[in-house]
């Protein structure tokens, strides 16, 4: 088994899987929009970690390029998403997603 800087690849995979699952569970369980948001970021970063690890492992840098893309998109997403959240908070005085059901029929 090959290692990256002394740590086996498996460990990276375990870690990112764990992170991803925490993210998924967070989105699923929590109702607070900000926490859900953070969980989504967690999922993205779990993927990022995995991509960097594999990129290094395979010696192909295109994975790392994608990570940059994802980080850029995530940043944009955060900008827009937080803005929306603030607007929601101003209107609803809460960031609980359960309360936001005005568009439901």
């Amino acid at each position: 088994m090959q290692t990256l800087s002394g740590i086996p690849l498996n460990y990276y995979i375990y870690l990112s899987t764990a992170l991803f699952c925490i993210g998924v569970l967070g989105v699923m369980v929590r109702r607070n929009a900000i926490i859900m948001f953070m969980c989504i970021e967690l999922m993205l970063n779990a993927v990022n970690l995995l991509m960097v690890a594999f990129s290094r492992y395979l010696g192909d840098s295109s994975g790392q390029v994608f990570v940059f893309f994802i980080m850029a998109v995530a940043a944009a997403e955060v900008a827009v998403g937080l803005a929306i959240l603030i607007m929601i908070y101003r209107n609803a005085k809460t960031s609980d997603t359960e309360v936001l059901n005005e568009l439901k029929l």
Partner: peptide, 17 residues
């Protein structure tokens, strides 16, 4: 079918997962 689209985010995520 539209009952599935209940607007509950958590439900969607569970469905996706």
């Amino acid at each position: 079918v539209r009952l599935l689209q209940n607007g509950n985010l958590g439900f969607y995520v569970i469905a996706i997962v």
